[in-house]
């Protein structure tokens, strides 16, 4: 093997293509609504992730604000923990807003 040129970043060889990191994209459709996860994309850094998000997810005026978050920064629940995490809520009826009528004028509930 030849000695790598110091100061030069090695180009990836065949089969070791280095992908850009993954980013999760959140778009707020209108003022007053929360940012909603719309998908993910690849970008080399946060600035370009935001610009890529504009091209991929908001080109038809879908939003007024965009967040990008490194996918690696998200801690997610695992499918194995589904039961302890979510199942106990099902039989606790008092946690669900079923005991009063929602007024007609209330939207976004």
């Amino acid at each position: 093997m030849s000695t790598p040129d110091p100061g030069r970043v090695a180009r990836p060889g065949p089969g070791e293509r280095r992908d850009w990191p993954l980013w999760e994209v959140f778009v707020r459709a209108r003022r007053g609504l929360s940012h909603v996860h719309v998908g993910s994309l690849h970008a080399p850094d946060a600035t370009l992730a935001l610009r890529n998000a504009r091209d991929v997810y908001t080109r038809r005026q879908e939003g007024v604000s965009v967040w990008v978050v490194p996918a690696s920064a998200i801690t997610a629940s695992s499918p194995d923990e589904k039961d302890p995490f979510f199942a106990p809520a099902g039989d606790k009826a008092y946690r669900h807003p079923t005991f009063y009528d929602v007024p007609d004028g209330v939207r976004q509930l």
Binding site: W20, L41, N52, V56
Partner: peptide, 11 residues
């Protein structure tokens, strides 16, 4: 070079 850049250039 990347899908995202493809979309940006096409836009």
């Amino acid at each position: 070079p990347e899908l995202e850049e493809d979309l940006a250039l096409a836009n």
